[in-house]
Simulated scan of single mutants.
Amino acid sequence: MATEFTTDITEAVVDSFAGTADPRLRELLGALTRHLHAFARETRPTTGEWERAIDFLTETGHMCTDARQEFILLSDVLGVSMLVEALNGHRDPGATESTVLGPFHMTESPVRELGATIDLVGTGEPCVVSGRVLSRDGTPLPGAALDVWQADGEGFYDVQRPDVQPPGNGRGLFTTDTEGRFRFRTCVPSPYPIPTDGPVGALLRATGRHPYRPAHIHFIASAEGHAPVTTHLFVAGSPYLGSDAVFAVRKSLVQDFAETDDPSLAREFGVANPFRHARFELVLEPA
């Protein structure tokens, strides 16, 4: 007997996944089907509107390359990336809060010594970022890995302008010392727009939204026996802290990049005095 799809197509599709061996995949496909069908029933898109939606997703896929992930960008501007982080992030209120990975963690960061610079082009105001990686109880974590990446002083990542920036500019993979400390030299990050030359940019323009992110540096911290954290360090006073295009700002991650007048510290860091200095502690939960 033919199925009367006008009334029970949703459950017919859900039932079609009954043989899925992976129970979690079966659960996800069933929920996706029910919510997607509910969206269609609520909004009643025309055939032309649905075709345009499919075209939009097709264009998003075509925009993806080894150096650009337009689907991550779409997830970011819809707030889904940050929602997933919130649902899966740390459970301990004393641990460093997690944020989005972003679309530019597309290449492996070069290994660098503590105190080295990640700014190979010198386009921004020089600064030092230092801090520690700690366990939740305050115990330093020696040998912790710290993956760092940021845009240059003009707001571009190395993969965006390979003709201007050498590979690995703004990136570094550091290992904390015996007291869990890290430090590196860089430039003070600046606000920048996410890429707007693709379908995500068209979506923002159509909805009257700006594409800007506040100034920030990305971090992934990991240590043996602890859950890794993907997070940001935001520059206090930066524009767009209250309207980040990807909804990733958390107050606990906003820090001063203060002008520091300390000749001995400047000598230790290998920079001219006075200098801009940000301090950042990353606290990891035991796994």
Rank of each mutant, 00 (worst) to 15 (best):
D15Q: 15
V133H: 11
P126Y: 03
G180K: 06
P286Y: 11
L83S: 15
L141A: 07
H37L: 04
T176H: 00
I220M: 08
L173S: 03
P110C: 00
V246M: 08
Q69H: 11
G198N: 14
V164A: 12
H218K: 08
P199C: 07
T20A: 09
R276D: 01
G237E: 03
T230L: 12
T230Y: 05
F275G: 03
R26K: 13
L87T: 05
R181C: 09
T47F: 12
P166Y: 03
Y240I: 10
S190E: 11
H226F: 12
E281G: 04
F174S: 01
G102M: 11
H37F: 14
L253Y: 04
P228W: 05
G201E: 02
S264P: 03
T175D: 00
P93S: 05
T33P: 09
A227M: 05
F234P: 03
V188S: 00
E42N: 10
W149E: 03
D261E: 13
F247D: 08
A86L: 12
F269D: 02
S243V: 07
V80R: 11
P140H: 05
L284K: 08
E51T: 12
L36K: 08
V271E: 00
T47D: 13
P189H: 07
D163W: 15
A266M: 04
G225I: 14
A145R: 15
G89R: 10
L120H: 10
R112H: 06
F182G: 00
T117K: 07
G102L: 09
D8V: 15
